[in-house]
Amino acid sequence: MKYILQRIAFYVFTAWAAMTLNFFIPRMIPGDPISALLARFQGQMNTDAIESLYVLFGIDKDASLWSEYVDYWKQLFNGDLGLSFSAFPTPVSEVISEALPWTVALVGITTVISFLLGTGLGVVAGWRRGTWVDGVLPVTTFLSSVPYFWLGLLAIYVLAGPDSFFPSSGGYDAGLVPYPDWAFISSALQHGILPALTILISSVSGWILGMRNMMVTVAAEDYITVAHAKGLPERRVAVAYAARNALLPNVSGFALALGFIVSGTFVLEIVFSYPGLGFLLFRAVGAKDYPLMQGIFLIITITVLVANLLADIVYLLLDPRTRKEG
């Protein structure tokens, strides 16, 4: 339990650091793009909204940095991320909450599948080292070097099209309203398959290589020799002894990979015009919608931290050495 509390403390600290970073970035922007944009919406905004943007972006030159910082936190705790410029006057939190489920579903499901599949294949590749399976490795190396978005472009070029089963863009049919009925869900699935496959193909290679190398490393441990000496069935040695131990570093490597996969997925969403956070960020960048950009960064950071915490809990369940005795 102590371990989990430590990890939670660390993630709270990281979240604080990310939000503080978020506070300072707009204050370091040379020039003043915000004021110009504010001027454009001057007539349509109420004073509260303008006030909140002032706090977020530090335009109010009279206020001290510290009082701005305190106000910034107050606002965050109220869930107020300001108003979006590009979707004016919708609050940023609302815009993000529409896009978040799409990204979480797409990344979450594909990452879990990719991890399980890649780890499983890695176990086989590591255990059957020296057989034909080794021939697959150069292919996986190549695939893991291909940028997600380019693979997405290829997928669209080869598989999607006006007559194809796979739609080339969007998250669901334009004629439908997001509502949990069968027509909508099936349409969402149909739109999700191609982006999901693309993520799967690009990310699975990394897990295969990582797990394969860990299997090779673990296979030289004494307890593997002991397991063989005990006359255990091959399967038991490979799974309960080798793979079970090789899995641990792979799970803790999740933290690094997750940020990378999220980044890759963001760009992929752009390619597929998928209605998730990545595509939203792309549109925000294009429209210079700073409040939205900042909000997306905050939300995605917190989501990644939560996912990391889940990975830590899984690790805790897998490795008895991190559990406290008694």
């Binding site: 933290a255 690094l256 997750l258 940020g259 990378f260 997306i296 960064f297 990644v304 990391n308």
Partner: peptide, 8 residues
């Protein structure tokens, strides 16, 4: 390490 780099 844990802050997603690309959005940043």
């Amino acid at each position: 390490l844990v802050i997603p780099a690309l959005p940043l």
